[in-house]
Design a protein around this nucleic acid. Sequence first.
DNA 1: CTATATTCCTATCTGGATAGTAGGAATATA
DNA 2: TATATTCCTACTATCCAGATAGGAATATAG
Lengths: 133, 133
Amino acid sequence: MFSVSARTQYAIRAMSCLATRQDRSATSAELAQAESIPPKYLEGIMSNLTARGLIESERGKNGGYRMAKDPAAITMLEIVEAVDGKIKPVTCVDAAGACALGGNCHPRKFWVGLKQTIDAYLAESTLKDVSEG
Amino acid sequence: MFSVSARTQYAIRAMSCLATRQDRSATSAELAQAESIPPKYLEGIMSNLTARGLIESERGKNGGYRMAKDPAAITMLEIVEAVDGKIKPVTCVDAAGACALGGNCHPRKFWVGLKQTIDAYLAESTLKDVSEG
DNA sequence: CTATATTCCTATCTGGATAGTAGGAATATA
DNA sequence: TATATTCCTACTATCCAGATAGGAATATAG
Ligand code: FES
Ligand code: FES
């Protein structure tokens, strides 16, 4: 329970690796190699991160990725949401009617609080913090 | 991501329902009915809660379950761990060698912190709080 | 222009976990 | 003995994360 998807773990490791490189740039294949991530799978993840604007991409020969921002300005929340979407402990956490109970059970507030707690932790952890261990 | 299992949601709803009954007792079938939970599935969950000592059971005719403690003395963490085990964002969160990287990646501290954050929230939320919404 | 290296897109397969079901054994009451 | 309950074990079905495959688009170099 509350397990972190491989997607997100891969994304964070890849970003962490990219951030600590000289020049802060690398190809997807290099990152996959360095972090033991299935190369083809990582490609899709990198696209997510690019779409979110956390990194920038260059196609073609000599292409690859580079950090779009300072690692201290990138939060774990941004990375998580880029690759796995907003976190949702229960389906009705934001849309009150999105569960069989129609948003009318007592525990719901508790789940909303949980989401806020997790979001807060993710938002206050920067890539810089994480990549430095 | 970070989604809560049906097991845990059911457990909390059932406990919440039980806690707010006169006499704080009911049969599994009654709780299943009241909370729209598959009856047979709930049976197994109730056994988990009994094993953990959060509720007490009585077999046979006129049997059922009753609260073993005051709802204010039962935390969400106890319920979650009773039915789904300890939470584990990443496999190596407590056993450092339990992942392909052998516990040696920088992000690991971050995941440990996440677990502590979630555990803390769950531990400070009591059944009384939750059942009262 | 051609060969090559890369990102990017779409479609598909697969295994394992989760959710749920089935049947009945044990136990208690009346 | 009949009935109502918890408890136990095993099975089935469903779903989706994880992974793979193939190739289109794009850029560079020679
Ligand atoms: S789970 Fe949606 S209202 Fe309780
Ligand atoms: S995930 Fe286990 S060491 Fe990083």
